[in-house]
Every structure is written in C-alpha cells, then in structure tokens.
C-alpha cells in the first residue's frame, strides 16, 4: 500500500523506485537515478507537482513547477532549452487561481530563459483531484563537457551550499492545518537555479557534483552523493546556514533543518582549491548571497556532522514524511 512517506524522498521513496519502477524500465540512463536522464547530448526530466497549500509565502505551485524541472536539468549540467506543462484541473477550480499559477510558471521560466513549448490540460470530476496538479517536463542540452556526476567526487573535495537550508519546507509546513505558525518571516526559497549554474560554468570551475536538495533535504542529497561516490562527507555544523525563523520553527516542531526541503538551493562539490572562488561566484549571483563551504569529502562512507562541541554524529536517511514531534 502507498503511504505518504513513499512520496517524501526518504528511504521509502527509494524502495518504491528500486522495487517497483527500475526493474520494469531498466534503462541505463534511468538507473543512474540522477535528477535528469541523459540521452546522447540531451538531458530529459519530468516532475509532478502537488502541494498544499498551493500558494505560500515566497511562491506558489506554478513557480514550483517551473523551477523544479529547470533545476533538475541544471543539476546534471544541462542548459535548459524547453519546458512542457500539463495541468490536471478539478471541476470547479477557480480560473483566477489558475491564472496566478500559469503566470508564475511563465515568469519563472522566462527568468531562467527557458521557453514553454508544449502543454496539456485535463479536467477531472470534483473530488478526483485536489484542485490543481501540474506536471512539467524539460529538455536540456549538454555542452562543453560540463557533466557533473557523483562519480567524479574525490576525497579532498569541498562541499558548498548556495544559501540557507530548510526555507521552503518550513514555509509550507507552517501553513498546514493544525500548526499555524505565523510571523511572516518563513518564506519559501523556490527559485530557478539556471543563473547560478551558468555563473559556475562561466567561471570554468571543475564541478564534480551538484544536487538541489528538495524532498528529504540536504541530508538526503549528501547521503546519496556519498553513497554513489563511495566517500565520506563530513559537515561542519557551525558553517551550515539556516535562517533564524527556520531554526525557531524547527525547534518548535521538533524537526532538523538538514532534513527539510529546499526549492532554490544547490549543493556543490568541487576540488577544495577552487572552493573560495566558487563561493565568491555564487555570492555574486542572484540566489547565492549566503553561499558557504559547509564540509569536505574524505575517505570512508556516509555523512558525518561535526558539532560545535567537536563531537560527531552520523546522518541517516529520514524514514519518510517529516512529522512534527510534540508530546
């Protein structure tokens, strides 16, 4: 039976893909489980977007649908060249709200310089869908040998994050029924990362791996990279940027910002000698102002966090959906 946790990006999601999808499709591009599949010189990706609520501080479903697919293409090193968008609409859905999402999707794609070239709509009877679901697909071109992959990651590399962690997940969770955290300072970071990646590529940096830490958060992405690369990643807890309101909300709900979703951040791994330059390049670009080196790659396995006390703890994949812990 499908549980909410199967969609949360943790171990249950992995099991679902590995046991129910991979054996039946079995293409080599798919089995690499990168953010986008690669066919020849093209990268291809698709993503379905459902979020409650659909409009949240800092963004909305439409912006998320554009940014998510653009970012997946960027993370394999591709230059996005075109998007498609399919809308599943529930009978009775407000046209005004539809316009809002379509406009946000269009604006986000335009900002990243990617045209929307195909689309589809389906209407389902009331109750058969929750308002609006959007699926976007994207094509990107791989050029100039820029092909980041966890296989390139080596001990001695530096780990960089392009900004603060946990903003999107906490902004959305705060609005859930039964939580109602206010204050207006929790804002989603949803943004297209095409500009950041263009800047990195333009600087001629030797990028070994990139990942946008969405569901499952930075912990999940780093665990995946460490596993694929056969290395240990050691993080310095004091260097990990987290905004005050996100930290406070996580504390109230018993959550760890490392496991909370981001929609406009990238994790970057490259040779330590290029780390300072990479941080400078990111900080000069839009959405990269709070970039920081947060760790390094070593021999070994797993992801280890060094606390400000000098003690260490290992990170594991989250079991499933993040649930507030109270009692």
């Amino acid at each position: 039976m499908i549980l909410m946790g199967h969609g949360a990006g943790g171990r249950l999601s992995h099991q679902l893909v590995e046991e129910h999808f991979l054996p039946r499709f079995g293409s080599s591009a798919l089995s690499e489980l990168m953010d986008a599949g690669v066919v020849g010189e093209l990268a291809l990706t698709t993503d379905a977007f459902v979020v409650t609520p659909r409009v949240f501080p800092g963004g909305c479903l439409g912006r998320l649908a554009a940014a998510g697919t653009i970012n997946d293409l960027c993370m394999v090193g591709a230059v996005p060249v075109g998007l498609s968008a399919a809308f599943i609409l529930e009978e009775g859905f407000s046209l005004e709200e539809l316009d809002l999402h379509v406009q946000a999707l269009a604006d986000c794609a335009a900002e990243a310089g990617v045209p929307v070239v195909a689309g589809d709509t389906k209407v389902v009877p009331r109750g058969a869908a929750d308002g609006l679901f959007i699926t976007t697909s994207g094509v990107g071109r791989l050029e100039g040998g820029f092909r980041p992959s966890p296989r390139l990651v080596r001990p001695g590399d530096a780990v960089i994050v392009s900004g603060t962690l946990g903003d999107h997940g906490m902004a959305v969770m705060a609005l859930r029924e039964g939580l109602a955290l206010g204050g207006g300072e929790l804002r989603s970071d949803v943004a297209p990362l095409a500009g950041l990646v263009r800047a990195l590529r333009g600087a001629g940096l030797e990028v070994h791996a990139m990942r946008d830490p969405t569901r499952g958060g930075a912990a999940q992405s780093l665990l995946e990279i460490a596993g694929d690369a056969g290395v240990r990643i050691t993080l310095d807890e004091a260097q990990i940027p987290v905004r005050g309101p996100v930290r406070a909300a996580c504390e109230i709900l018993g959550l760890d910002p490392l496991y909370v979703a981001n929609e406009g951040k990238l994790l970057l791994i490259l040779p330590a000698a290029q780390a300072d330059e990479a941080v400078a390049v990111l900080r000069d670009a839009r959405y990269g102002q709070a970039a920081a080196v947060i760790g390094r790659v070593e021999e070994g396995r797993g992801v280890v966090l060094r606390t400000s006390l000098g003690t260490t703890r290992s990170l594991r994949m989250a079991a499933g959906e993040l649930l507030p812990r109270i009692c």
Binding site: M1, I2, L3, M4, G178, L179, A180, I252, L323, P324
Partner: peptide, 11 residues
C-alpha cells in the same frame, strides 16, 4: 492512507 480521517495537530 486507506482513507481514515487522521489529522496531525500541534496542540
């Protein structure tokens, strides 16, 4: 997941 009404609350 099977349709029972279960709601997580903070308070």
């Amino acid at each position: 997941a099977q349709g029972a009404r279960v709601q997580v609350v903070y308070s």
